[in-house]
Each structure stands twice: as C-alpha cells, then as structure tokens.
Simulated scan of single mutants.
Amino acid sequence: MDLVEALHAEGNTTCVVGAGGKKSTLYALAERLERAIVTATVRIPPFEEHVTEVRVTEQPLEALESNVEWPIGLVRAQERSDRYRGYEPALVDDLVAEIDDEVSIVVKADGARTRWFKAPADDEPQLPATADVVVPIVSAKIVGEPLDEEHVHRPERVEAVTGLERGEEISTTDVATVLSSDRGGFRDVPDEATVIPVINMVDDSTLEDTAREIAAEVHDRRDVSQVVLTCLLEEEPVVAVV
C-alpha cells in the first residue's frame, strides 16, 4: 500500500497533527497526489522546494483562479523570513466548499518544534470542520526516551494524559495512550472524520517491533481502521499498515 492509499488522502482534506514527521508527511503526500494543495492553519516554515510554488494571499480561492501547476502551496502571510502564517480553519472550509472534488488538500494543523512526541494545548489542533482525515503522528524513536523538553513538546500535557512524571521513561503504552486519547490524537476531531494514526521514523526492524506494539495498543483503545508505520526518508515510505 502506498502512502496516499494508506492515509486515504486522494481527493480528501487530510490534516496532520502531533510530532515526529508532520511536515515530512505533508510533503510526501503532495509529491504523490495528482492535484494537491499544501496549506496550514498554524505557522509553517517555508516549503517552496516541496511544491511548484507558494502563493501568499488572504484570498486562497482567488489565488487558484490563475494558472496552477500542482502541487501548490497556499499561505496567508509571511510572518518572518523563517515562517509563514496559515489560515483560520473556517477559511479552509470555504476553500474545500469551492474547489474541485478531485483536488486534495493537506493541512498542517498544529506545531511541535521538531520534537518527537506531544499532546495538544487548549487551543490545538486547529482543525477545519471539513477535515476528512486526521493523522496524529509520533516518532517510534520516542520509546525509551525520558519525558523532557528535549524530546517532547508540551511535556506537561503528556504528563496529564499518561500519568507519567517528568524524567520518566516513555513506554509504548504511554505513546498509545496519547495517540488514542480525546486529549491527544483524537482531540477536537470532527465527527465525520477518519483518524489514521501514523508511527514514523520506523528505520529498522527493532523500531518496527516497537511501532507494532504501539499499533496493537492503539487498536485496544480505539476503533481505528488502521495504524500506518512509516519511514518518510525512503522512496516508498510505508513500512506496514497494521
């Protein structure tokens, strides 16, 4: 199964949240989708090398009225030289309502500051109501690492969801708990959206064993169709679909 099929991304609005490979997932999807828009509802670093162009505009629909080469990036403003500002979720909903059904939208819907694991803050994630698929992501490499700010974004939130204390070792159970929690990977997911957790950085057989343990525990906690294991640095990034 390829990445587009595994994440049900073709023709859908796919929102990626969590930590450990959000942007890489967006760009890998954009590369493989026939007609894709890459955007965000939060800040996003420059990503021109992953799309044909980035159009900076307050009116994304108007930006699509001129000639488009796919995939295209749409952002609201350039906030600083090292980041763009995304759109309000309602504006993404407006975009979804007007574009062709064959166009896929991939959305960065929260931040993690390059960490491997997180649980969302009160104002996260910023999900459009029209999201078809929500992809909570985590790095398999977080297992065995301490719960600290070096490895985890918002460690106090992970503490609250898992019962871990600062500095304690993160287990597969802790990761699965956050991925499957309404205070974690399922936070504010629209009722009609499909949740497909992704465990990324599955770079070798040992990490695959770890990821499969996490996937099994997610299935024990939530009714999800599948958990996708990825190594996004590979040409074929899907390691397994559990």
Score class of each variant (00 low, 15 high):
residue 64 L to R: 10
residue 81 S to T: 15
residue 89 P to R: 01
residue 30 A to M: 03
residue 94 D to Q: 10
residue 18 G to E: 00
residue 31 E to D: 14
residue 45 P to F: 10
residue 71 P to D: 01
residue 20 G to Y: 03
residue 64 L to F: 08
residue 67 N to G: 10
residue 35 R to F: 08
residue 106 V to M: 13
residue 74 L to Q: 05
residue 69 E to C: 15
residue 103 V to Q: 02
residue 94 D to P: 03
residue 64 L to G: 09
residue 65 E to C: 03
residue 29 L to R: 01
residue 63 A to H: 12
residue 26 L to Y: 02
residue 45 P to N: 08
residue 19 A to C: 03
residue 89 P to C: 11
residue 105 I to Q: 03
residue 78 Q to Y: 03
residue 27 Y to L: 04
residue 77 A to H: 04
residue 60 P to S: 13
residue 40 A to W: 02
residue 80 R to W: 15
residue 72 I to F: 07
residue 28 A to S: 06
residue 32 R to F: 01
residue 76 R to G: 14
residue 30 A to S: 05
residue 36 A to L: 13
residue 71 P to C: 06
residue 76 R to S: 09
residue 41 T to F: 12
residue 68 V to P: 03
residue 56 V to A: 08
residue 54 V to F: 09
residue 86 G to F: 06
residue 87 Y to W: 08
residue 106 V to F: 01
residue 27 Y to C: 05
residue 80 R to A: 10
residue 87 Y to M: 12
residue 72 I to M: 11
residue 26 L to E: 14
residue 58 E to W: 08
residue 27 Y to S: 00
residue 66 S to D: 09
residue 77 A to E: 10
residue 28 A to E: 01
residue 16 V to M: 01
residue 81 S to H: 15
residue 60 P to H: 12
residue 25 T to A: 06
residue 24 S to I: 01
residue 89 P to Q: 13
residue 87 Y to A: 09
residue 66 S to L: 14
residue 89 P to D: 12
residue 43 R to W: 10
residue 67 N to Y: 07
residue 27 Y to G: 01
residue 97 A to W: 11
residue 37 I to H: 13
residue 53 E to G: 10
residue 101 D to G: 14
residue 38 V to N: 00
residue 64 L to V: 08
residue 68 V to K: 04
residue 83 R to V: 05
residue 66 S to F: 14
residue 57 T to S: 08
residue 29 L to K: 03
residue 29 L to S: 05
residue 95 L to N: 09
residue 77 A to G: 03
residue 96 V to I: 06
residue 35 R to W: 05
residue 82 D to V: 07
residue 62 E to K: 13
residue 69 E to D: 14
residue 49 E to N: 06
residue 29 L to H: 00
residue 75 V to L: 03
residue 90 A to P: 07
residue 98 E to F: 11
residue 37 I to G: 04
residue 98 E to Q: 11
residue 29 L to C: 00
residue 81 S to F: 13
residue 18 G to L: 00
residue 100 D to I: 11
residue 38 V to I: 13
residue 37 I to K: 04
residue 105 I to L: 07
residue 42 V to W: 00
residue 78 Q to E: 06
residue 46 P to K: 04
residue 41 T to P: 06
residue 25 T to Q: 00
residue 31 E to L: 06
residue 97 A to F: 04
residue 74 L to G: 07
residue 62 E to M: 11
residue 104 S to V: 05
residue 47 F to I: 09
residue 106 V to K: 03
residue 41 T to H: 01
residue 40 A to F: 11
residue 93 D to V: 15
residue 71 P to V: 11
residue 100 D to S: 08
residue 57 T to D: 12
residue 47 F to N: 09
residue 101 D to P: 11
residue 51 V to W: 02
residue 89 P to W: 09
residue 20 G to M: 00
residue 17 V to C: 00
residue 27 Y to F: 02
residue 101 D to S: 14
residue 102 E to W: 05
residue 19 A to Q: 06
residue 93 D to I: 04
residue 91 L to H: 11
residue 54 V to P: 06
residue 68 V to C: 15
residue 73 G to R: 05
residue 19 A to E: 00
residue 67 N to R: 15
residue 43 R to A: 10
residue 39 T to Q: 07
residue 98 E to S: 07
residue 58 E to K: 10
residue 106 V to P: 03
residue 44 I to T: 09
residue 43 R to Y: 08
residue 26 L to P: 02
residue 54 V to N: 02
residue 88 E to Y: 10
residue 53 E to Q: 05
residue 70 W to K: 05
residue 37 I to E: 07
residue 85 R to A: 15
residue 103 V to A: 04
residue 97 A to R: 09
residue 22 K to E: 11
residue 66 S to W: 03
residue 105 I to Y: 03
residue 94 D to R: 14
residue 98 E to L: 15
